[in-house]
Design a protein around this nucleic acid. Sequence first.
RNA 1: GCGCAAGUGGCGGAACUGGUAUACGCGCUAGCCUUAGGAGCUAGUGCCCGAAAGGGCUUGUGGGUUCAAGUCCCACCUUGCGCACCA
Length: 991
Amino acid sequence: MAEKYPFKDIEPKWQQWWEAHGVYHAENPDKTEKQKFYGLVEFPYPSGEGLHVGHPRSYTAIDLITRKRRMQNRNVMYPIGWDAFGLPAENFAIKKKIHPSIVTTQNIATFKRQIQSLGLGFDWTREINTTDPAYYRWTQWMFIQFYESWYDEKMGKARSIQELVIPQDVELKGQEAIRAYKDAERMAYKAKTTINWCPRDKIGLSNEEAQGGICDRCGGPVEKREKEQWMFRITKYANRLIKELDQVDYLEKIKTQQINWIGKSEGALVRFVISTNDQEIVEVFTTRPDTLFGATYLVLSPEHEKVQEWIESGAVTNVKEIKKYQDQTRKKTEIERQENKEKTGVELKGIVAINPANKKEIPVWIADYVLSGYGTGAIMAVPAHDERDFEFAKKFELPITPVVRVPDEDIGGCGAVLETVKGMFLFQKRDQKAPIQPGMIALFGGGREPGENILSCLKRELEEELELDISKRTAKYIGDAASRTRPGKYYSIFHIEDIDLKTLKLHEGESIVEMSLQEALSHKLVTEFTKKRIELFLKGYSETVFTGNGISMSSDFLDGLETPKATEKMISWLEKNGVGERKTTFKLRDWVFSRQRYWGEPIPMVYCEHCGWNPITDNELPLVLPDVKNYEPTDTGESPLSTMTDWVKASCPICQGEARRETDTMPNWAGSSWYFLRYCDPNNKEAFASRRAMEYWMPVDLYNGGMEHTTLHLLYSRFWYKFLFDRGFVPSSCGSEPYASRRSHAMILGEGGIKMSKSKGNVINPDDVVAEFGADVFRVYEMFMGPYDMDAPWDTHGIQGVKRFLDKAWNISLQQIQKAPLIKGDQGGFENVFDLEDVRPYENILHQTIKKVGDDIDNLRFNTAVSALMILTNELQTADLRARDFESYLKILAPFAPHMTEELWHMLGREDSIHASSWPAHDPDKLKVSEVEIAVQINGKVRGQVKVPAGSDEAFVRQAAEQVENVKKHLEGKTPKKIIYIKDKILSFVI
RNA sequence: GCGCAAGUGGCGGAACUGGUAUACGCGCUAGCCUUAGGAGCUAGUGCCCGAAAGGGCUUGUGGGUUCAAGUCCCACCUUGCGCACCA
C-alpha cells in the first residue's frame, strides 16, 4: 500500500503546464491593481561546470517566499537571466578555438534545462542575457552617460556635463583647457594609474577584485602596473554609499562590510614646508591633528612623486640608497608586504621639513609602511601616539615626543608617570605620594623652575619625592611639558630603562600600601583618573592622554581637552594659519573599469588626434563585439580587439576625421550593475526600461546573494543605480537605493564538511539528484539541511529522510482523497460529507502549523518550517480531514513541494493552479489547546508532571501536583516556603 | 592585532520575551513483514547507576544573578568568517 511519490510522471508535466498557463508570469503594471513583490536572486554566470547544488539553495529559498507572496495576492516578479560575459568562457575559447558566444549559448542551455527541472517559479518571459547586443546596447549607453556627467558636490548628485560651469580663467585659455577641465570632472574618465595586474589572467583588476593582493578569479598574486585605464568616479559616492545604507534593510554584517570597505576617516590635511625651499610643501593626512606637536619626522611612501622630484633636482644626497629601496618595494608583492611587517625605510638626506606647530625641523623618510594609495601617500609620524611610528622610531632611533594633555584636576602637582614600551603613560597625583618602584619602566614628570638643571631636578624629584635611587640606572630625557595652572613651570619627562612595571606603592599615612595593578583598579587610594589609565595600560593600548602640551609648545591651548575637542581646536588653528584644513578620506578608490580581454562589452569610445576621446553616437549603438581570430590576451596588456585593424578604425564623431576605437572591454560587473532594472521591462527597444515599469517594480523587495559580492557587485550596482537615479534616468519615486532588503545564503559543502571540488571528486550534480529523487525532494532537502545562512554539508542519508517524508505526505493525501466522499462546495472547491461543525483533534496542530510555516518562510527559517510540516504530516496519518482543512495542508506544503501538491490539488477536481490559490489563514481560536502538561519543580528540580485544563489557576494545579507520588515524596510533608506558578508552564516549590 | 558570528547527542540541527534541553531528520538497536533487501512498518535511543520505580550528571571552560539559565552578567578557551602597516 505504501506508494512512492511518482515524481517522474508528475514533475515534467506540471512544469510544462505552469509555463503554458503563465502561472509565474508577472503581470504588467497596467494590467493589475495588485501590490507588487519583486524577489531577486543574483543571476548566474553560466559556467561550463553546470549548475552547482549551491545555486538551488538560494533559488528555492526566494522561490518559497515569492510563492507565498503570490498566494497572498501579490503580483510577484521572480526573474532570472544570464551574467554571461566573463573569463572562463574566454579561456575555454582560447583552448578549444571556439567562439565564446557558442560556448556561452551551450552553457546557458544547460543551465536553463537544469534550473527548469527544479520547478522554480521564474518568469521566463523576462529572461535576459548580458551578452545579447540588445542588452549591452544599454550598458554601453550608460557608460556614455557616465562619461557625459560630473558630480556636483554642492548639490550632492551627478549632473550632465552640459551643466558644468567653466570658470572664466579656464574659458580664456581656449578649447584645450576647457576640455581638460571637463575631463577632470567626468564620472567616467581615462587616466594613467597604477593598477592591479594579474599576470596569469593577463588582465587589469579593480581594487575590489584584488583584495589582499590576490586575484579574485584565479587566486594568484597580483602585480602593480602603470596603465591608462577607464575609471569610474565611484569615490564621489563614498559618503552616500555609507549614509544611504540606513534607508535599507540589509543584514548587519553586510552593512558593516560595505562601510569598512569604503573606509571613511575624518581628520585634517596638514602642510609641512620643506626648510631648504619655502615653496616646497608636503601634504599629509592625519586623523589626529591634535598630536601635531608630537610629529617628530615625516614619512613618504616610496612611490611618492616628491621623492622622484627631489632625486631629479638633486635635493637629496643619498640617491643610490633611495633608489635601491624603491626597487625593493616595487618588487615586493602586496602579499609579501603584508607578511613581513618589520619596519624598513630610508632617510631622505638633505630634506628637512618644518613642523608647523612648533617650527621644529624634522627629518623626512621613505618607508613602505606608508601606502601610496591612501590619504596623500605621506604621513606625519607621531611615535608617542602611534604604534607603527613608535616601532619605526625605536628602530631608527628617532625622537619620541608625547603630546600630553591632562584635565585640570590632575595638574596640581608633579606625579609619577608610568609608561609601557608601547607608549602608554600612567599618572599618579603627587599628593598621593605614589613612588615609582624599582622594576618599572617609567616616565615621570617633575615640576622644575625655569632654568633649573634638568638632571638635578630629576634627582631631587626621584630621591626626595619619589624615594627612588636612580644612580644605578639610565634616565633618558624625553622632553618637557608646560604646566597650565602654574605658568612658567614645566614637567620633565624621563624614560628610565630596565624597569618592569608590576606593582604600585602608595603612601597611606605613615605606612606604604603595595598592590598589583589589578588590585589598584579597585583600590580606594587610587584616583579614578589613574584607574582608567591602568585599565588602558593593562589592555595594552597605545593611546596616550597626557599632561601639559608637549615639547616647546608655544601655547597651552590643548590642555584639559578630550581628544575630539582638541582635534577640533587644532583643525581651526590649522585653517586659521593656512597650514592645513579639515579633510575626510576614504579607502575606496575609483573603479578601474577597463579590461584587456575579448569577452566583454566594447567600450563605446573613439580617440581622435584632434578631438581626444569622444563617445560614439546613439545610433551607432550597440557597438557589437566583432569576431576575432585570436582571443589570446597579450603580455603587453593590449586587448585582443586591438588586432582587429578594420574594426579599430573609426571616424571621429566631432570632426569626422580618422579616429580609433577603444579596444579594452568592460568588466563583467558592468552588465550586472543594472540588470534588475531590465527585468522590469526586458524587451523595451526605446529605453533600458520604461519609467512606468520602474515606478511600479522598483525597488527590489528582497535580494539574495553571496557574501563574496558585498564589496563587488553589491557596491558597484548601488553606485550605478544611484548615478542613474541622480541623472533622472530612474524615476525619483523609486528611491535612491535599488534593493530594499538584502539577505545572504551560505554554502553547501561536500559530504564530511569539506568544500565540493572536482579534484576531491565530491561534487554532487543536481541532475543526478533530480533523476533519483525528483525536484520536490531536492527542494525540501535543501531547505531542511540547516539554517539558511549557515554552511551545511551534503548528506546522502539525509535526503532519504526527506524522501520518506514526501512519500508519506503523498500517501496520506491519496487516502484523504479516496476516503472522503467529495461533494462540490459553494466556493467552487469541495467539501466532504463529514459534519463540518464537530471539533477535530487535528485542528489544533493544523492551525499551529499554518502559523509556524508562514512565519518561518517570512523569516527565512526554512529548516524549522519543514520540521513543522513533518510533525503535522506524522499527526495526520490517522486523521480524517475536512476537505477545506486538507486543502490548507496542501497549500502550506505547496511552496516546498510545488509539483506534488499541484497534482493532488487537481485530483481534488481543481482546475486552476494551487500556486495561484490563496494562502490559508490560521484561526487564532484553534491555536489554543484545551489541556496542558505542567512541570512540577521542587527546589529547582523537576519531580513530576500534571495534566490540567489550560488556564488553570495555582490552587487547582497545586492540588493536582500534591497528588503525584513522586512530588509527595519530595515535599516530605513540609509546607513550602515559597511557590511560584507560571500559568500553563510550571509550578515550582521551594522547601 | 581589530571587527563579526558561532560552540548543544554518534551526525545535521531544535528551543518564542529565562520556565520540563536534546524537537525534526539522519544513524544505531530490537522486533515484524519479505525469497531477499541498502524497501516498508513498530518500538527504543544524551550520559552514568538501577530489574524497575527512581536517582545523579549534561548545552566550550570557570565564576555570578535567579525559585528556575543553552538563554542574562563577568572572565577565559576554541573554531569559522571578514578586514588587516588605512596614518
